[in-house]
Design a protein around this nucleic acid. Structure first.
Lengths: 370, 370
DNA sequence: TCCATTTATGACACCGATGTCATGATATCG
DNA sequence: CGATATCATGACATCGGTGTCATAAATGGA
């Protein structure tokens, strides 16, 4: 591969002049510039990043580690959305900064994280981003203090900057919207209680009920380990069956995520219930392949992975920029940033407005305007 | 960040000795080794890859470009499986080689490919892999001839080494299996004809029919642009409706992919048909989030993304290794490698063996043994 | 016209690791 | 015991850009 020395010789100038042409430092004469550019083209010159960064002591590389690292040993079906969207967001935020993003995948193996970090450090990355597959707590090995780190979709106990989905808020908004549509008996099939989303989303559900003055009914709520290889569907079936046999059954069922909603569709229909006429279904995640392809399309909450990625990228850039300014500032133990996504109202839930109470009022959108 | 000079000074040895400790070149005395290792630990030393690769003229980096680059302007819902699986396979194949995989995502923008390649070249990657989101033809910019390139899930007209899914074979095996299960009227809802998979999979379907002596019935076949934003479901509904109204309707419907199958489930059930009792459904891709979560689980063909990734990684390694051996060998215009995946038989298709003809025979598995 | 800038370019050192060669200290063998 | 092989280590050059400083030519203002 050609070097600037080759280019310099070919153009009859010094290497430094070639460097100037590339970087636009000092002034260069028009004829000289033309000769250099011609030489570069003729030789197919590509600058060596290694040499450049060695001198400049800046790599221009951001390290991105992604993969299904679980604090508990979960099976791999239990995954969130493709983290691709987070990665896209990160790249969007970084593409104007001139940084190159190096991505490494752990392939779900916790023991690969430390070596990957070392590899990144040996490439002198200017910052690191760790992306988890779903909202969880993690614990990463200690980094050199001059290497900024941002966590996405996860958090630790050391106060490392983190970008998280606002699970509680999203579920809250969705349930508020359901109430606004006239639903009063709202079932909730939650994810496992040991998952962060299995805790936060139900909280949002209960807050929305409380705000509307609807009492929380334990009979309408269940944690369901729906993705167990064999028993999962049966557990889900039982939970649904129990709710539907109630004297006052739910008119809509919220699912812990879209994947569960997909299974619930099949179960409800096998039971002979029509969606959404007899019972509505709502999800969470806006896992588009599912939510938009389901028939009818699924009402759900957008998990704003792209936006989270953008925020993470921006956060990291500011950390990198501020690094030298505040050398020994107090540790930036800020609270994590929560990003909320919009409710996406689709055909899987019926509007019940024209019923009883609201039907009476002339301008019937009272509860919707909370 | 500490350098080997710092380490050398701290340990009271020469830089070269530090290098020897790291690389295990020449012999090093036990006490010296201990002193050096202690110094490295004390200083938190991490070797600079830039300096190393500059000297070695080897980067140890493989460039991986991925993203939804389409030759035609498709909407982004039309995507295959998460390419993550291909990436995982590639990393699996490369992890023992000591290479670092640098991944860059194009975020679906064709114009980003060329700059990304330049970035990779400036990092002196030893090889490049291009991964497409779904089986398609691509055209990449010219690379320096000493940089090996492997295409995955796509191919070009220049004879670049490519790893492809064996769409035809997979569909053939699935249909053979359906026939073996007693089905004779097999509907096929194909992907758009301008997609590679929309051509190859139907070919496999027809070959399997032909082999079993079942005449091809055009009334049981339709290309359906099911993922059009609005009209898609309606088009699909019409196609299905037409088939089911036939005098001799299909007992099972093959779908172009799992996503289409997901939509077909909803439509069939809205029509009041039970799956699989009244009609079977089969997909293609083994898009696990869909295929395993659908109720009942979907019979489909595995698109062996992981295996394809492994093959691609191995292929690239052999190209890199052989590079110097056969400097001016004839251009390696080999035919692409096709990787076939297994048929995954799940509950969405009923076994019809104990029916009429076969029921008569004592050892009734005649057509299954093709 | 002469000195002060500005412009255009080159010489040279340097970044950090490592290959090559040299050197001194032991170990081995006839 | 001397000659040679082996071990342990260091000096130095090198990879390819780029920062620093020097130098030479062109320009400009008094």
């Amino acid at each position: 591969m050609a070097t600037i020395y080759d280019v310099a010789k070919h153009a009859g100038v010094s290497p430094k002049t070639v460097s100037r042409v590339m970087n636009g430092d000092g002034p260069v004469g028009d004829k000289t510039r033309a000769a250099v550019e011609e030489a570069m083209r003729a030789l197919g010159f590509v600058r060596s990043n290694a040499a450049r960064m060695m001198r400049a002591q800046k790599s221009g590389i951001i390290g991105l580690i992604t993969g299904a690292i679980s604090t508990t040993g979960l099976n791999h079906k239990q995954q969130g959305l493709p983290d691709l969207f987070i990665v896209q967001g990160i790249q969007r935020a970084l593409e104007t900064s001139g940084m190159t993003v190096m991505i490494a995948d752990t392939a779900g193996r916790q023991d690969r994280v430390a070596p990957l970090i070392d590899t990144f450090l040996s490439h002198r990355v200017e910052g690191l981003i760790y992306v988890a597959e779903y909202h969880q707590e993690v614990s990463l090995p200690q980094l050199p203090e001059d290497t900024p780190l941002v966590l996405v979709n996860c958090f630790d106990t050391k106060g490392t900057p983190a970008i998280l989905p606002d699970d509680k808020r999203g579920q809250y908004e969705l349930v508020r919207r359901l109430i606004g549509a006239g639903h009063r008996r709202i079932g909730y099939l939650a994810l496992r209680a040991d998952m962060v989303a299995g805790q936060l989303r139900p909280q949002g559900y209960r807050e929305a009920l409380a705000e509307a003055g609807i009492p929380y009914d334990p009979a309408l709520f269940a944690h369901t380990n729906f993705d167990l290889p064999e028993a999962g569907p049966q557990l889900l079936w039982d939970s649904i069956d129990r709710m539907l046999r109630l004297a006052n059954p739910p008119t809509v069922i919220c699912c812990g995520n879209d994947q569960m909603a997909l299974m619930v569709y099949g179960i409800l229909r096998t039971m002979g219930r029509r969606v959404p006429d007899e019972i509505g279904v709502a999800g969470f995640d806006n896992y588009r392949v599912i939510a938009e392809t389901l028939y009818p399309p699924l009402t759900t909450v957008d998990l704003p992975y792209n936006a989270m990625g953008v925020r993470a990228g921006e956060r990291l850039l500011s950390l990198i920029a501020g690094e030298e300014a505040q050398t020994s500032a107090p540790p930036p133990t800020q609270s994590p940033v929560c990003v909320a996504g919009p409710v996406l109202w689709r055909a899987s839930v019926a509007e019940m407005r024209p019923t009883n109470v609201l039907h009476m009022k002339p301008n019937g959108r009272k509860t919707d305007e909370v």
